[in-house]
Design a protein around this nucleic acid. Sequence first.
DNA 1: CCCCAGGCGTCCA
DNA 2: TGGACGCATGGG
Length: 217
Amino acid sequence: MTGRTTAVLHEIYHRLLAHFGPQHWWPGDSPFEIMAGAVLTQNTNWSNVAKAIVDLKATGKLDPAALAALPTAELAELIRPAGYHNLKAARLKNLLALIEEQGGVEALLAQPTAALRELLLGVKGIGPETADSIVLYAAGRPVFVVDTYTHRLLVRHGLISEDCDYFQMQELFMDNLEEDAVLFNEYHALIVRVGKEFCKKSKPDCAGCPLAGVGLD
DNA sequence: CCCCAGGCGTCCA
DNA sequence: TGGACGCATGGG
């Protein structure tokens, strides 16, 4: 871990941390809240997800047993503010089935990292980012989470090509950083933070970004 | 009015 | 295998 890519990835992290400070992710009180939030935030602004989570909490439904007893159509209405509510209600139900089958949230999250990841990927509606978000932020395992902001950032800083896939991006980080869940937690959160502010599709110039020039010769 | 958001599954060539 | 498309609400 002494190459140029390693150095650039470290520099990006340290600049982001210096500029934004720690992000304290995931903003959830329990592992199950994090798991549900991971599904609800698929292609969705967090402010919309937060409304749905507030409603779930207010009605006492942010709990595996309570949600399992709730008809899918009623669940969909509760999470309406998060968008794609019919789709996400079904996905949450699918996740609940896995939790039940594994004997509860704690037992599921106690599975070895690779097994946990595969179990989650087996749930219809849970793909690589949602699975890894749960593995990292709910189970605390050192798996790097990649999202659209990550892709955009890596392309703009010349670290990957446009057609790079999820696993290649994940490997890039995991091959060049210490295997540390706290570091991976903060790094992904910081990428989302800088993405929201400076790395938008509509701002190809990245004006004002604290990463200006990093990785580009 | 427009674009965007912490993806994923399906369909079709 | 890979590119389009549907899913939906709320904010700027």
